[in-house]
Design a protein around this nucleic acid. Structure first.
Lengths: 333, 333
DNA sequence: GTGAAAGCGCTAACAC
DNA sequence: GTGTTAGCGCTTTCAC
């Protein structure tokens, strides 16, 4: 068993409270007592049980971050933003991965909210369609801020990219460049971002007085096989497609690979635009034109909101949009 | 304040112990009582305080994973292996990022070991050169397993890639292909993997009866600017370099970019081999020849070891090596 | 089948 | 300046 303050008290010959006070550098404790206690604590290799302290103080100085997938560059950039703010606020961050499963999501929510952390930042899994586990948090007064994968069905702070205008910029740029039939590789349909990006796509078509064609839209599940299938299907039935807009860079890069394998020249025959500005966008050939959604800022702002809420400063519930920008490279004309 | 078992007890009209037993489905509690308690618990939106339970039971069913950098593909692959094993064992996993700082590392170790988790998996930060914070864990009887970034200065289970033989295979292959002057872009010097890969590099040279030249080795700090500088320097002073072996794929890809910008043809003038088989290896042109170190297996085996230790099955302390393999693509002849 | 009481390791009034 | 006491929310022995 590990050393406790009781053990130290016994050795030093004082009460546990004195030990507790000495170790947290309470001003009213005699300097010599403090010294003696610190020496013994060190010698006995004492490590404070932060969980017990947290239970008592109702304060952990930890936050939890729940994401669908840690290895996704977008989420890890957001994470680095969050960590930066957390470090400044002297908080530790525990990251949990749901693997796109609502069950895991609910499990982590429970676990983190059950006295482990002072607040939670989270991005919904793509299968999440019930929100009881989130609304529970409200009732428990555990601050929650959603980022990126947000939802209008839950009444909390939300920080997300300007998906609609980002998609609009991308498609508008393609149309200005002369493209007429633009395929859209969408992410999972029930995600709000997917819907918003579709809105932007449609709005750009409208601006250029082109009609929306449903068969140019393919919903993909964020995996390579899916994209390959979608691309093959699109180009089999609509050989006159002249551009592809993908809901993220991974899909866009995969689309480029498929086009190459079909001997279709990018951007001369088909232009490609992605979303996210992942590092891979600068490596693939041709270098990918893409919409940057400023993931780092999403993380920073979401974290700032969370800390405000933890401090009890209740901002009005707000949806915050982080501006996106179009980054033009070589996969478009 | 959130609902507690006391609140439920008051409403139902029984004792807290009965509530506790009912909710954990104790066999000796009357079915009707259980039902009644569950109904009230649900209505009052009760969430058990797992931290309090953990404090009492000395068991959390959580493990912690500490890595230098979450966004690194290598670490996220390892993580997915860990998660898989953890999910099977009904454990939750909390991921912590040190950003290569020993202070953060020590902070997270303390925090996780202070009653928050039943065991810790970790990969050392590149600046870690003292090991007290790790040896403390031993004294506290908190199981620890190191992976990838390991050290011979701490006496715990360690799981790592076959760095030396992996590097040997890569360099041997280059030499067999006709390369004579092979530059090595090494990772930070104090990491054991860097040293082991260097050993492999030297062993391959020796096999082919070539002498080791120190000026062909450049230590880089895992960032793009560094690699650019190293490459520029190498190729300014040794224009007859005909191959580059990089300690990871990110560096290798960056090296290819630099070579391209210098109008040097890959692989015809200079061959390039990486380490890791990151997804980017199949995207870059030419596609990257690289050593796969089977990150997923590293995660799985490290986690299995940890769970054995948590269960009290004390395997002998062991260093386990996961086999690497050479994946030949287009960046070599 | 259920309750009372003790205690996990810590902190914080309240005493003196 | 330091000790006593109570209690954070839970589980678990020991009663009955």
């Amino acid at each position: 068993m590990a050393t406790t303050i009781k053990d130290i008290a016994r050795v030093v010959g004082c009460s546990p409270s004195t030990v507790s006070r000495a170790l947290s550098d309470h001003p009213q404790i005699n300097e010599n007592t403090k010294k003696a206690i610190r020496v013994v604590a060190k010698k006995m290799n004492f490590q404070i049980n932060q969980v017990a302290a947290g239970l008592r103080k109702h304060k952990t100085n930890c936050i939890g971050v729940i994401v669908p997938q840690i290895s996704n560059y977008f989420f890890s950039s957001i994470l680095s933003g969050i960590q930066k703010v957390a470090a400044q606020a002297q908080y530790q961050v525990f990251v949990c991965e749901t693997n796109e499963s609502v069950e895991q999501e609910a499990g982590y929510i429970k676990s983190l909210s059950a006295g482990r952390t002072d607040g939670i930042l989270m991005s919904l899994s793509k299968t999440t369609d019930t929100f009881d586990h989130l609304n529970d948090l409200n009732r428990q007064h555990i601050p929650l801020v959603l980022f990126d994968r947000t939802s209008d069905k839950v009444n909390v702070d939300q920080v997300e990219a300007e998906d609609e205008s980002g998609a609009f910029m991308a498609v508008d740029y393609l149309l200005k460049g002369g493209s007429k039939r633009i395929a859209y590789l969408s992410g999972p349909e029930n995600l709000r971002n997917s819907k918003n990006r579709l809105k932007g796509y449609k709005a750009a078509l409208k601006k250029h007085k082109l009609s929306f064609k449903n068969k140019l839209v393919h919903v993909c599940d964020f995996n390579d096989a899916d994209i390959k299938e979608a691309m093959t299907e699109l180009f089999a039935n609509n050989s006159n497609i002249d551009a592809v807009f993908a809901a993220n860079d991974i899909m866009a890069v995969e689309a480029i690979q498929v086009l190459k394998s079909m001997q279709i020249a990018v951007p001369d025959q088909v232009a490609v635009v992605g979303f996210g500005d992942y590092p891979i966008a600068r490596i693939v050939e041709p270098k990918l034109t893409t919409v940057s959604h400023n993931a780092h800022s999403i993380g920073i702002n979401a974290a700032k909101r969370l800390f405000k809420a933890i401090e009890g400063v209740s901002l009005d519930f707000k949806e915050e949009k982080i501006s996106s920008e179009l980054i033009i490279r070589d996969s478009t004309r």
